[in-house]
Amino acid sequence: MRVLDFDGTIYDGESLLDFYFFTLRRYGSMVRFAPAALYYAIRYRLGRVTLEELDRAMRRIGGRYLQQLTSRPDFDMDRLVSEFWDRNMSKIMDWYRPRQDDVILTASFDVVAGEACRRLGVGRCIGSTLDMETLEVGYLNFGPGKPVHFMEAVGDDARIDSFYTDSDFDAPMVQLARKAYLVERGCVHRIK
């Protein structure tokens, strides 16, 4: 089984950030959520907030963002996501050749990354979950939680032949894989 991270690995950028800017261009009032989200994201990268603190902050900020976004009379999440990918499928990196049995394991929300996977013909996308009825985050799929969510989705006996990532944050997944690859600026290097 080939398992791949999404953002920075097969997608050139951060899809949730790009999606946010996509909604911002449409709905300028969404700008009010940027400062707090960036504050916590940067502090997490610098090691100044814990994963739990980041999780709580992103749930709070994300919930407010979604409430404002979905309160619009013309809101249609499926249409919005589809229009986003109409513009951004070209950001799938050239090195990536999708296989139907690939597993995409991402911190991006399944509602966003899942559409890209569908268009690529990839059978399984394991991402952060979002309940569109309640606008609540089910779980954020990053860091040490990735292997847990992966095993829950595919089973404890799953064997990872190769894992692809762009980040040291995926070290727990690298440990589970027989072979691992680091993707840097579209170049793939074996690291295990």
Rank of each mutant, 00 (worst) to 15 (best):
D94K: 02
R64E: 14
I126W: 06
R178I: 07
M77H: 10
E136T: 05
D86C: 12
R190Q: 15
F19Q: 06
D5K: 03
S71R: 10
L140H: 00
F142Q: 04
V49M: 06
T70S: 15
D55T: 07
G121H: 05
T129E: 13
E115W: 03
S29D: 12
K192L: 13
D86N: 14
L140D: 04
A158Q: 11
P172R: 02
L120F: 08
G47M: 10
T23H: 06
L17M: 12
G28W: 00
T50I: 08
R45V: 13
F75A: 15
T165W: 00
D156P: 02
I42A: 14
G155S: 07
R43F: 14
I92V: 15
E115T: 14
W95S: 11
G28P: 15
G186R: 02
D157P: 02
P172W: 01
C125V: 14
E133T: 12
N88I: 02
F142H: 03
F163G: 05
G28H: 06
L120R: 09
G123M: 03
M173S: 06
L24C: 08
N141Y: 08
S162N: 07
A171L: 05
A34R: 02
M30E: 08
G155N: 09
L38C: 08
D168T: 09
E14K: 12
R185E: 15
V137W: 00
V154N: 05
